[in-house]
Design a protein around this nucleic acid. Structure first.
Length: 233
DNA sequence: TATTGATCATGC
DNA sequence: GCATGATCAATA
């Protein structure tokens, strides 16, 4: 291959899908090498390595900006770490919970629904026993939350959690709530703090939180995809 | 052992 | 400081 620099962003959805199909079966080492990306020994200090490598390989340019990875296509890229059992090992971060700016939001206009409008899920082997460079990329699926059979559950979870936050109960929310969508801490550490409005209406400090899709849910997304006839080849 | 809560690196 | 990319590691 003469590819020694990151590709330009894909111009069309078809181009993006063709690129991601071409990655299926390759290892992270195969993908990182021509991009001159060093593969870390473990992910403890490089937790974003897999996602960032796939972004680069596919031509995403969003970086850490709050826009979709493929802005012009309206597509968000998410890698799914797949265990030996073939199921996602981890939940999937969606976006930050606007702990102090949820007023006036409904599901239709929520950040969660917008972020999940079109997601390209790319499964990647994540057996801890396998060296990172040897982990293979699987077949991707382009998914839309509005088309998912569990979309009503997604909405119901969002509405329940958003309602609790509006009522000032954010500090009473744990990751146990929500059947498919949950809220968990998402910050530098447990001492990270942001302002919010408490039960009594006063400002108080709380941990920053994020919306996450449960691993059991993304597992069902993959199941449904692979149960279908193969996409046009 | 599945899940929750904590944590890490980087860019702007 | 906040958003991006997530996985780690203690706990239930």
């Amino acid at each position: 291959m003469l590819e020694h620099r990151p590709p330009d962003p894909p111009r069309t959805e078809e181009e993006l899908l063709a690129r991601v199909r071409a990655l299926a079966g390759k290892t992270l080492g195969d993908i990182a090498r021509p991009l001159h990306l060093r593969v870390p020994r473990d992910l403890r200090r490089d937790k974003g390595f897999v996602g960032q490598t796939l972004e680069t390989a596919l031509g995403a340019r969003a970086g850490s900006r709050p826009i979709p990875d493929f802005w012009h296509l309206g597509v968000e890229l998410k890698t799914l770490p797949i265990g030996k059992d073939g199921r996602p090992r981890e939940s999937t971060y969606v976006c930050a919970v606007p702990v102090d700016a949820l007023h006036g939001l409904v599901w239709e206009t929520s950040h969660v629904r917008r972020k999940l409008a079109r997601v390209l899920f790319v499964p990647v082997e994540a057996d801890p026993a396998r060296p990172i460079a040897d982990r293979r990329v699987g077949r991707a699926t382009l998914w839309s939350c509005d088309d998912d059979p569990e979309r009503d559950t997604l909405r119901a979870d969002w509405e329940e959690l958003a309602s609790l936050i509006r009522q000032g109960f954010i500090d009473r929310i744990t990751a146990h709530r929500g059947r498919v969508l949950q809220i968990r801490p998402k910050g530098a550490d447990a001492h990270d703090a942001r302002a919010t409005v408490g039960e009594d209406g006063w400002l108080l400090a709380t941990q920053p939180r994020g919306w996450y899709l449960r691993a059991a849910f993304t597992n069902r997304v993959l199941d449904r995809h692979y149960a279908r006839p193969a996409a046009t080849s």
